[in-house]
């Protein structure tokens, strides 16, 4: 189970933040926020190869002593960041990848909502 999940918009502002209850929300946000640095770097590397369909899953961005930070970016530069416990061995790379795919499809449905203006905050029910 992931600890935190964040959807970040094109302009690097969070659109949606979910935190596991009982965690230090601010610390996790700091982690996700700094993870953006890595994502940005990875995207900018990817941009050097135009026409090359990039892998959307960016893999492990970095790891702290307690958490692992995984990143994923859509072609429209919407970023997903998932934070897991370092000790969580159940989540392999493949599971994380599936999680992101699922997240991406959920995000697509959100965007398909005609009442949703892209860039607005997303709220979960």
């Amino acid at each position: 189970m992931a600890v935190s999940l964040t959807i970040i918009g094109k302009e690097n502002s969070p659109l949606y933040i979910w935190m596991d209850e009982g965690r230090d929300s601010l610390q996790l946000q700091y982690l996700a926020h700094t993870g953006l640095d890595v994502i940005q770097e990875k995207i900018s590397v990817g941009q050097k190869l135009p026409g090359d369909s990039r892998e959307l899953y960016l893999g492990l961005l970095y790891a702290s002593e307690e958490y692992k930070i995984y990143g994923y970016t859509t072609n429209s530069k919407i970023k997903f960041i998932v934070i897991t416990d370092v000790t969580n061995a159940a989540l392999r790379d493949n599971e994380i990848r599936m999680m992101f795919r699922h997240l991406h499809s959920i995000y697509s449905t959100v965007v398909c909502n005609p009442f949703y203006v892209p860039g607005e905050k997303i709220s979960s029910q």
């Binding site: 502002s13 969070p14 933040i17 601010l26 946000q29 700091y30």
Partner: peptide
Amino acid sequence: RPGWPALQIQ
């Protein structure tokens, strides 16, 4: 300016 409101408030 885009940013991370929670962190900015902090």
